[in-house]
Design a protein around this nucleic acid. Structure first.
Length: 421
RNA sequence: GCGAUCGUAGCUCAAUUGGUUAGAGCGCUGGUUUGUGGUACCAGAGGUUGCGGGUUCAAGUCCCGUCGGUCGCCCCA
């Protein structure tokens, strides 16, 4: 690998579409993840960990082998055995694979959350990176509409806790298998009858994925889409009752939503509930959290018939929308002067940290430098410790915001800080 | 995969129709003050102008290529 013949070293640069975070963006990232963990705990969801890499067919099968999603947009490569592996482009397929592999049906119904990096081999652009991050929630093994309600209420509360403004929940149903099939046929008939007016892309979709014509961006398709039959005309009694139950449950939970009859999911293992939390602040990449019921997926992957529902949300997008977190990393900064004080500072730090304080000391520089660093760290208090304080068994406690300073007995410091908390 | 656009200090940007030694602010380091930060003043470090080639007496500036960023198209699980 390293070629010491050549003086030219490779540039230190990230792989295309991958990014490094430090400081404010890193804090926002952590804030989203932290809030997600907290809200998921309140809803009784358990953390699940699954691999970042799976055999390519795990994703290829669920996405449809022939689409260029598979051929072009998955981050795939061969390992040393010539086995085709893929960096996960989404969470659901891997979690379902684990559910089958590990026999997790014994725990059903399972309420699971996870978050972490995902990968898609696309040209990066605004809001889309090759490595990106999502939060994810799934309920596996529950056919009840109550599961959909709880899952959506979870997302709703999360967005509220994050302080995300201007988001609306759009809700639709894709019905059960028969309803969906009948609707699909109805749509194909409708669009085929007006094929000549249809945009070129939508004409292609007519063959591959007719439901997707409904969210075509082409202005030319608008009137046709408006005139297209809604699913309601094809709804079976069971599917209608299910959708009704979800809507009533949301209303009872105080979750606001609006019916969006053109909201669809492309793949045919999706059933019933489909929803998206859509922001008006993000341009074309408007969805912040999207999900739905995928009762057919686990069976399609070779497992037992298992109803399931889930959602995922992009952390980077949520970062852009949430109110900025208050970044107070350090509470107490120690400013020791001289070797003896530096040594003594270690004991103080240990005591403070054991008591739950975020505390640190500057490692270098004269007093001025250390005070500067203390100020930059955002610490509320500076604890100044020099030879005279050591002798007297005291410290100087400075309130950084007020600029006031007083002498405190070393033995009382912890109590004084706790009182000020 | 296709298209547009941009690459100058760690960051944000200057630099006359091509014309001396490529500048500023912020940040960083040190000092004014070897015991006091968030405000002041002084000084310093930091650049092969992304990389390679070409045109020219002369290229940060013009041309070609290449790599990278950004935005869009395709796609969006």
């Amino acid at each position: 690998m390293s070629d010491d013949q050549k003086p030219q070293r490779p540039k230190a640069q990230p792989v295309r579409g991958m990014q490094d975070f430090l400081g404010e963006p890193a804090a926002r990232f952590e804030h989203v993840a932290q809030t997600f963990r907290d809200v998921s705990r309140r809803f009784g969801f358990r953390r699940v960990e699954v691999p970042v890499v799976e055999f390519t067919h795990v994703f290829a099968r669920t996405l449809g082998e022939t689409t260029d999603v598979v051929s072009k947009e998955m981050y795939s490569f061969e390992d040393r055995n010539g086995e085709s592996l893929t960096l996960r482009p989404e969470f659901t397929a891997g979690i379902c694979r684990a559910y089958i592999s590990e026999g997790w049906q014994q725990f059903a119904p399972l309420k699971l959350v996870t978050h972490g990096p995902l990968f898609r081999y696309e040209r990066p652009q605004k809001g889309r990176y090759r490595q990106f991050h999502q939060i994810d929630a799934e309920v596996i093994g529950a056919a009840e509409p109550a599961a959909d309600v709880e899952l959506i209420a979870f997302a709703d509360l999360l967005l509220k806790e994050l302080g995300v403004q201007g988001v609306t929940l759009q809700l639709n149903t894709l019905g059960d298998a028969e309803t969906r099939a009948a609707w699909r046929d109805g749509l194909v008939a409708h669009f085929s009858a007006h094929k000549d007016v249809l945009s070129e892309e939508s004409r292609k979709r007519l063959e591959t994925n007719p439901l997707r014509i409904l969210d075509s961006k082409e202005a030319a398709d608008r009137p046709l889409v408006e005139a297209a039959p809604a699913i309601d005309a094809y709804m079976s009694a069971e599917a209608g009752a299910f959708f009704e139950a979800v809507q009533k449950g949301l209303q009872a939970s105080g979750v606001a939503f609006e019916r969006q009859a053109r909201l669809v999911r492309g793949f045919d293992y999706y059933r019933h509930t489909a929803f998206e939390f859509v922001s008006d602040a993000l341009g074309s990449q408007a969805t912040v959290i999207g999900g739905g019921r995928y009762d057919g997926l686990i069976e399609a992957m070779g497992g037992p018939h298992t109803p399931a529902v889930g959602w995922a949300g992009g952390i980077e997008r949520l970062m852009m929308l949430c109110s900025e977190p208050a970044a107070a990393d350090v509470e107490v900064a120690l400013v020791p002067m001289g070797e003896a004080a530096e040594l003594a500072a270690n004991g103080l730090l240990a005591e403070l940290r054991a008591a739950g304080f975020a505390a640190e000391q500057g490692w270098r520089g004269n007093m001025k430098k250390r005070m500067e660093r203390a100020a930059k760290s955002g610490a509320r208090f500076a604890v100044i410790l020099g030879d005279s304080e050591l002798e007297a068994g005291t410290v100087a406690l400075k309130d950084m915001a007020a600029g006031t300073q007083r002498t405190v007995a070393r033995a009382d410091l912890l109590a004084v800080l706790q009182a000020a908390r």
